[in-house]
Simulated assay, not measured.
Amino acid sequence: MKDLAQITVNKVMTRSLKIVDIDTSFEEVVKTFNETKVHALIVVGPGGEFMGILSHSDIIKGLQEYGPKIFVLTAEDLMHPKPFTIDPNANLKEAAAIMVKNRIHRLLVISSHAGKYIPIGVLSATDIIKAVANT
């Protein structure tokens, strides 16, 4: 078995991101979740800059907190604005440590371009397990 420190995030991350604009309506967010079968959406602002992440858990929390008023909200109102992120060149040992320490299941992979943070992938616990299984 290969050491997790020898495998970089960019080798195993999921590259096909499902992205919504910050002003996407709640109804459109739900529709996107249903059509894409993903568990998290990346929320971007003008120019594609990363603003936050919106997961199934955020939707459930929003339904509890806002009830029927949730239908007037946008992705910005429901997203988690400061999710845990990781550099694509970090290794899986570092990624796993962040996940365990913070009791989370995914990290947003961010690249910096011209002072803006651009989402380029998502690394999930499942991605790490698959990497271990395939080594």
Rank of each mutant, 00 (worst) to 15 (best):
K18V: 15
G48T: 08
S55D: 09
K2L: 13
V30W: 04
M79Y: 08
V72Y: 07
G48Q: 10
T74K: 15
D87T: 04
I86E: 02
I118F: 08
D77C: 05
V29R: 01
L63P: 01
L73M: 15
R15H: 15
P68I: 14
R103I: 00
N34E: 10
D58W: 05
T126W: 02
V38T: 14
G52E: 05
A131S: 11
L92H: 03
S124T: 15
K18P: 00
T8L: 05
F33S: 06
V38E: 05
L63R: 14
A114N: 15
V20R: 02
N134L: 10
V38H: 04
S57A: 14
G47Q: 08
A125C: 05
K31H: 11
G47R: 08
I60W: 06
L54I: 13
I19G: 10
R15N: 14
M51T: 02
M13T: 03
E35G: 12
N89G: 11
F71T: 14
K11N: 10
E76S: 13
K101M: 00
V20S: 12
Q6L: 11
V132P: 00
V9H: 03
P88C: 10
Y66P: 10
F71E: 09
N91H: 10
N102G: 02
P83M: 02
A40P: 01
T85A: 04
H113G: 00
S55L: 05
K2G: 01
L41I: 05
D3Y: 10
G121N: 07
R106S: 15
V44N: 01
N134H: 12
S25Y: 03
T36W: 00
H105V: 01
V122A: 04
E35D: 14
I118N: 09
L123H: 04
R103F: 00
L4D: 07
D127R: 00
K31M: 08
L108A: 13
V122P: 06
I70E: 02
I104Y: 03
F71S: 13
D58F: 07
D23G: 11
S25T: 15
S112H: 06
R106V: 08
V72W: 01
N10D: 15
K93I: 02
P68S: 12
F26S: 07
I104T: 06
I70A: 03
